[in-house]
């Protein structure tokens, strides 16, 4: 930090080292924000980048801003993001698969063009010297800022106050949902279920009898295929179904094989139930793995 005290053409070696090391992480965090499939990971990457930026603020003599960056951004804003992520949940929107034709190509082209041009502009600006903030920060960074905010920028400051109030009210107005109708009773819900006739009895419970009782394991239908209906919808939407039917079927097949070997009989080539079960299981396992089937329903 003492490098800041020097006016001139270069910063201290320490700052340079810090920059080069942290800049790599900052870029990595930014890329992570863009490229991570799950929003939570994106949020965490962004938080990391923001912390690194806070360090850079400090290195640039903006002590107050550096602290505010951590407190407000990394603390409050990112928390808000995570809250909303929790509210909204996970969905097909998280997929990185592009749906608009040519969008990604255009985005990359524009990005490259934008970055190159911006950097060319900066490089072209002949910024070889800099003044440093020694004089400005001589009375303390916070004091200097306060003097400016409450004197030169006081009007803008007042305006931001009004803006924040407005934003707070807007946040409440937008998210507030007035309850205009009575919550249906259990009896009414049952009656409606019968009327609709889609799923009259209660949903079946998850888990496989005597083997697994975790909520993310679907129950099996008589033919051995997993019944997704048994799993909680949120898990279904997230594609977090752990399918164990394949293993059960494999075990069954092995037992039958062994029995056949023991009895000296050739196993009948195809038992229809067995074959169907295999196919269905593999399909379902595949979909569960990529999560697309679940996401499709989630939409």
């Amino acid at each position: 930090m003492n490098a800041l005290a020097q006016a001139g053409y270069t910063t201290s070696t320490g700052e340079a080292t810090q920059f080069w090391v942290l800049a790599v992480f900052a870029v990595a965090g930014a890329l992570g924000t863009v490229l991570m499939r799950k929003s939570v990971h994106s949020a965490l990457c962004l938080a990391g980048t923001m912390v690194i930026l806070a360090v850079f603020y400090l290195a640039n003599g903006a002590y107050f801003l550096g602290v505010v960056q951590i407190v407000v951004y990394t603390g409050a804003v990112m928390m808000l993001f995570l809250f909303v992520l929790m509210l909204v949940g996970i969905s097909a929107a998280d997929s990185l698969k592009e749906t608009i034709k040519g969008q990604r190509v255009l985005a990359v082209l524009c990005g490259i063009g934008f970055g190159v041009l911006l950097m060319a502009g900066i490089g072209n600006a002949s910024l070889s010297t800099f003044d440093g903030l020694e004089d400005a920060n001589s009375g303390g960074n916070v004091h200097g800022l306060a003097a400016l905010i409450f004197r030169d920028y006081v009007f803008a400051f007042e305006l931001t106050g009004a803006l924040l109030i407005t934003a707070a009210v807007a946040g409440m107005v937008l998210t507030h949902r007035e309850k205009t109708e009575r919550t249906p009773t259990q009896r009414e819900r049952a009656a409606q279920r019968v009327r609709e006739g889609v799923q009259v009895p209660p949903l079946p419970a998850p888990g496989v009898y005597a083997r697994h009782n975790a909520v993310d394991i679907p129950g099996l239908l008589p033919d051995g295929t997993p019944a997704e209906l048994t799993v909680n919808r949120t898990l279904r939407d997230r594609g977090q179904i752990r399918d164990v039917s394949a293993r059960a079927l494999a075990d069954l097949a092995a037992i039958e094989q062994r029995t056949a070997d023991y009895q000296g009989k050739a196993l009948e080539p195809d038992t229809p139930a067995d074959d169907d079960g295999d196919g269905a299981v593999s399909t379902n396992a595949g979909t569960a793995g990529t999560g697309t089937a679940g996401e499709g329903e989630g939409q």
Binding site: I100, Q103, L106, A107, C110, G113, F114, L117, A120
Partner: peptide
């Protein structure tokens, strides 16, 4: 997002023109 790409491209053009 399509509109955003247009804006992005527009920004590129603007910067190029400025430079």
């Amino acid at each position: 997002r399509s509109y955003a790409v247009s804006m992005f491209g527009g920004a590129v053009v603007l910067i190029a023109a400025t430079l």
